[in-house]
Design a protein around this nucleic acid. Structure first.
Length: 430
RNA sequence: GGAGACGUGGCCGAGUGGUCGAAGGCACACCCCUGCUAAGGGUGCAGACCCGAAAGGGUCUCGAGGGUUCGAAUCCCUUCGUCUCCGCCA
């Protein structure tokens, strides 16, 4: 959510920044609502001040036993009461409308974010690793002989419908090993705090990180009113929801391995084969809560944390910076990591690392007191995948596949696989 | 699921119809004293919003929403959250 005062102080800059997001004319709408709102508030407050004054005099009159004056003032107060209620209602209505409008407006891109309409305008920052040269046509993950016994889409569909999968045997173990490896790397090498959170949350948390009010159809809502988190960003970030945290505890760097649930409304027909896009998947998520000064540096640090996972797994990738049109609503800048998938012969998103500034913090009302005292300031929040586990599984399988249908696995997974380094063409670890 | 209790400022915790935005403690900031792995004294210190160049003034907020009342942290209703006991259960 945006700071109305910042918009008032510099409407041109705000409008220009929104234009880069493809939004036009919102600023004048906001300002006009805001001035109406303030006029109403002033009127209501002045009326209230008068009533408060009269109320005090009522008490004084009563105390000195002046019944006539008491009755006169009482009647006066009663009379102005309904007027005040009307003015207050109007002010509250305008305030709510302004808030709703502001809640629906995306964050402002930083200057360094490239302008663009869609993913074609994203800018590559760097590449790591060389895609392997195959002496046979590489297959997609679900076509590889060694994978097929352990990746059961039929049973997944029977149990839960499309976009669900059942993993078995060696595949299930590799999947689990990947998640364990990632968490260990982040806590042992990167200094993040391992965190375990609920996957069902209250509605206010979804508002806090920005999934609501605009993107509710992307997530699942239970009968009891709980939302299933689409990412642990929701729970990790909202750990400071409503808090005034001690500055000395910043930055807070957390990592969680969680189930994620997405309805994938709007992506019907995309990535329908394989387990690239599922309704339920696992992700290792990183979240940092920082102060205003260190947010951007933290963004680079977090990007490095995610890149380190891919490098340890020997998976070629590229890091791109998303253009204004491709960036999520809450972000001021986003780095995507795209891993090389030889079966698809292209790079695919496997991590997204975003710096949100104080956008989420305003929604959550999460603040810290600056060092040496002073007014509380909003924290800055960052989130990034480190990494999407299912997609990492795909990348490991496709990049390690052999002509005979077996798969050579990354060395770093060995301790997590009972010493195994290969998945045979029959789907057995060895 | 049954019964009950609770929700106050950064934290703890008093306060049961007006003099309460709210005692006291802790934490924090500054000052004084003292002098060394401590302690003592003083002062300040909730947030949001509105008006104002500022000084300053005003409004609201004691989980949230509504009600009673001239007046609500305090009484009533609803709701969210938390806790305890019982039941069930991984």
């Amino acid at each position: 959510m945006h700071d109305i005062r910042a918009i008032r102080d510099n409407p041109e800059a705000f409008e220009q920044a929104l234009n880069r997001r493809g939004l036009h004319g919102l600023t004048s709408q906001i300002l006009s609502l805001d001035s109406d709102r303030r006029a109403r508030i002033s009127a209501a407050e002045n009326a209230q001040a008068e009533q408060n004054k009269a109320s005090k005099e009522v008490g004084a009159a009563k105390a000195r036993g002046d019944e006539a004056e008491f009755e006169r003032l009482r009647a006066l107060v009663a009379q102005t009461k309904s007027d005040i209620a009307t003015m207050q209602a109007e002010a509250a209505d305008l305030d709510a409308r302004l808030r709703d409008l502001l809640l629906g407006i995306p964050n402002l891109p930083l200057d360094r974010v490239p302008d663009g309409a869609d993913e074609d305008d994203n800018v590559e920052l760097r590449r790591w690793g060389n895609p392997r040269a195959f002496d046979f046509p590489p297959k997609e993950h679900f076509e590889i002989a060694g994978v097929r016994p352990g990746m059961d889409f039929e049973t997944g569909a029977k149990l839960s419908g499309s976009r669900f999968v059942v993993l078995k045997g060696g595949i299930a173990r590799i999947h689990r090993a990947l998640a364990q490896f990632m968490i260990d790397l982040h806590i042992d090498k990167h200094g993040l705090e391992e965190t375990w959170t609920p996957v069902l949350v209250l509605e206010d948390m979804m508002l806090g990180t920005g999934q609501l009010p605009k993107f509710g159809e992307d997530s699942y809502l239970t009968r009891e009113g709980y939302w299933l988190i689409p990412t642990a960003e929701v729970t990790l970030t909202n750990t400071v929801h409503g808090d005034l945290v001690d500055h000395a505890t910043l930055p807070r760097r957390m990592v969680a391995h969680s189930q994620c649930f997405r309805s994938e409304a709007g992506s019907a027909g995309r990535d329908t084969t394989g387990m690239l896009r599922q309704h339920q998947f696992e992700k290792v998520e990183m979240v940092s809560i920082t102060d205003a000064e260190s947010g951007l540096a933290e963004h680079d640090r977090m990007t490095r944390c995610a890149e380190a996972v891919l490098e340890a797994l020997e998976l070629p990738y590229r890091t791109i910076i998303l253009c204004t049109g491709d960036m999520g609503a809450g972000a001021r800048i986003t780095h995507d990591l795209e891993v090389w998938l030889p079966g698809q012969d292209r790079y695919r998103e496997i991590s997204s690392v975003s710096y949100c500034g104080d956008y989420q913090a305003r929604r959550m009302n999460a603040r810290y007191r600056p060092e040496g005292g002073g007014k509380p300031e909003f924290v800055h929040t960052l989130n990034g995948s480190g990494l999407a586990v299912g997609r990492t599984l795909i990348a490991v399988l496709e990049n390690g596949q052999q002509a005979d249908g077996s798969v050579v696995l990354p060395q770093v997974l060995r301790p997590y696989l009972g010493g195994a380094t290969r998945l045979s063409a029959e789907g057995v670890l060895s």
